[in-house]
Computed example of a mutant assay.
Amino acid sequence: MIQVNIHEAKTQLSKIIDQACRGEEVVIAKAGTPVVRLTPIAPRPSRRQFGALSGKARVDQRFFEPLPEDELRAWE
Score class of each variant (00 low, 15 high):
Asp18Lys: 06
Asp60Cys: 11
Val35Gln: 13
Pro66Asn: 06
Glu25Gln: 12
Glu65His: 09
Ala9Asp: 02
Pro66Phe: 05
Ala9Trp: 02
Ala20Ile: 03
Ile41Gly: 02
Val26Asp: 04
Leu67Lys: 07
Ala31Tyr: 11
Gln12Asn: 09
Gln12Ile: 00
Pro66Cys: 06
Ile17Lys: 01
Trp75Cys: 06
Asp70Tyr: 10
Phe64Pro: 01
Cys21Glu: 11
Ile6Val: 14
Gly32Arg: 09
Ile41Met: 09
Lys10Glu: 10
Arg22Glu: 15
Pro40Thr: 04
Val26Ile: 12
Ile2Cys: 01
Leu38Cys: 07
Val27Cys: 00
Ala20Trp: 01
Ile6Glu: 09
Ile28Ala: 03
Ser54Met: 08
Ala42Val: 13
Glu71Asp: 10
Pro45Gly: 07
Ala42Leu: 14
Asp18Trp: 02
Phe63Lys: 03
Asp60Val: 10
Gly55Asn: 03
Ser14Cys: 02
Gly55Trp: 03
Pro43Gly: 08
Arg37Phe: 04
Phe64Gly: 06
Asp18His: 05
Ser54His: 14
Lys30Asn: 12
Arg37Val: 12
Gln61Pro: 04
Val36Pro: 02
Lys30Gly: 04
Ile28Leu: 10
Glu65Phe: 09
Pro34Leu: 05
Asp60Ser: 11
Ala9His: 01
Glu76Pro: 00
Gly51Glu: 08
Leu38Pro: 00
Ile41Ser: 08
Ala20His: 02
Ala20Lys: 01
Gly23Trp: 02
Val59Cys: 11
Pro34Trp: 05
Val59Ser: 11
Ala9Lys: 00
Ala74Val: 10
Leu72Gly: 07
Lys30Arg: 13
Ala42Pro: 03
Phe50Val: 15
Ile17Gln: 02
Ile16Glu: 00
Phe63Val: 11
Ile6Ser: 06
Val59Gly: 05
Val26Arg: 00
Ile28Trp: 02
Lys30Met: 14
Val26Thr: 03
Val59Leu: 15
Leu13Lys: 06
Ala74Ser: 14
Ala52Arg: 14
Thr39Cys: 09
Val26Leu: 02
Ile28Glu: 03
Ala42Ser: 12
Pro34Arg: 07
Arg37Ala: 10
Gly55Ser: 04
Pro66Glu: 05
Pro66Gly: 03
Gly55Leu: 03
Ala42Glu: 14
Glu69Arg: 02
Ile28Tyr: 04
Ile2Gln: 09
Glu24Gln: 15
Pro43Lys: 09
Leu38Lys: 02
Thr33Arg: 15
Val59Asn: 03
Ile6Cys: 05
Gly32Lys: 11
Ala74Lys: 11
Gly23Thr: 05
Pro43Asp: 13
Ala9Pro: 01
Val35Cys: 08
Glu76His: 04
Ile6Asn: 02
